[in-house]
Design a protein around this nucleic acid. Structure first.
Lengths: 213, 213
DNA sequence: CGCTTCTTTGAGAATACTCAAAGAGCGTGG
DNA sequence: CCACGCTCTTTGAGTATTCTCAAAGAAGCG
């Protein structure tokens, strides 16, 4: 997970990350109001995180792929404010927060890394709010695809071809759109030669044009 | 700022908060890409924080009233990812981050408080995304007013009557709506007897009904 | 291989937006 | 202190984007 830590710190982290956990497709790693005890890092598979309104409305607030952190929302109140659901059979590293906290007190770099993770999440959510607040349906889907592409690339996968494990409905729930609208936008991108969607398999043909949308 | 710190820690914090700064209405406390050096706490007045897209689009991601923190976005990259603009002549406490960080290494409670602040911001933004992604214009304005009311109450002001320092346009920019839509929703709430808006002075008449919207 | 779930597409409806103009409020300067 | 001008707010009318409802087609799973 931590790209900017030295070998020493990584070994220290290994002493804390004693266990991994398997989560089956559709199951929850944690739910809203669960007691917060650990941070997690996706090891294999993928997750969505959702917040639920009392009336049952859901908002997907993020998708996590291997290497990305989960659970930072729980630090402030001691209970989780969202829930993390596996999009496919997945495994996570468990990082017990109490132990991680001790490690942070010993290692300034580890401490900085935790700050980095939390602040990054704040910045990520800010740009998501920008998307939800100012963009058209077309722009939202374009920026979603480009963001995913960049993250896959950053983790060593192809940024041009990847598999969407989430449904159109989940994408819509993330982008503040209905599933039909998401589907129509995919069709439009396909018609315009920007993207080649074969079901869940996505091939980004013209990233430049996507960025200009 | 910190509600859960002891007298000792508050005195320690006082040694770090050496200076305050005045910011005139319309001026920036910090701008996007400014080097991050300090956290701030609003002392008097109020601010908006905005993120800017390259094409000039703006999204207001928060309004800050006295007692609330500013600048947490800068921790991860060392530069600010948003800008903070004063909505009226205001003052802030300056908390140099390097010194605050040292203090956190000495005091576990101070450390926890920083975690708390960052994680709270993550949770706050999550619920904002829920609003932007799932709510109608009417519901957005209602939840905005109730949120503000709760925050004023938490800081010891009246939750039923308060002054909106931000314009209809800024509210719209925060709620993902146009200023005309915001104005229409105010008119509707007025017509229905939920809110008594006298220009920028807001009187919440029926908070229960607002919550049911 | 059949059933269920997901996706696509169409048609019509609703919400929010755009453009426009009048009215109110605020700050500034005489 | 009042008047002027500017900005902000309100309201209306028409438009556009997205949503809703519906149905057919495709894909995935057991």
């Amino acid at each position: 997970m931590p790209a900017d830590l030295s070998g020493i710190e990584l070994r220290q982290l290994d002493t804390v990350v004693l266990t991994t956990r398997h989560v089956r497709r559709g199951e929850a790693l944690f739910r809203t109001h669960d007691v917060f005890q650990s941070l997690y890092a996706v090891r294999t598979g993928s997750f969505k995180t959702i917040v639920m309104h009392r009336d049952g409305r859901e908002q997907v607030i993020g998708f996590q792929i291997p290497g990305e952190p989960l659970g930072l929302d729980g630090v402030c109140s001691g209970t989780h404010s969202c829930e993390a659901i596996a999009l496919e059979d997945s495994t996570v590293c468990i990082i017990p927060f109490a132990q991680f906290e001790s490690l942070c007190r010993e290692s300034r770099r580890m401490q900085r890394h935790l700050y980095y993770l939390m602040s990054s999440e704040i910045v990520r959510e800010s740009s998501l709010m920008m998307m939800l607040g100012t963009m058209t349906a077309e722009q939202r889907l374009a920026s979603f695809l480009l963001d995913l592409a960049a993250r896959f690339r950053a983790r060593g996968y192809s940024g041009a071809k990847f598999n969407l494990k989430m449904s159109r409905e989940e994408i819509g729930c993330y982008l503040g759109l209905k599933l039909e609208t998401v589907s129509r936008m995919f069709s439009r991108f396909h018609r315009d030669g920007l993207v080649e969607p074969k079901g869940k398999q996505i091939h980004i043909v013209d990233a430049q044009a996507l960025a200009r949308v």
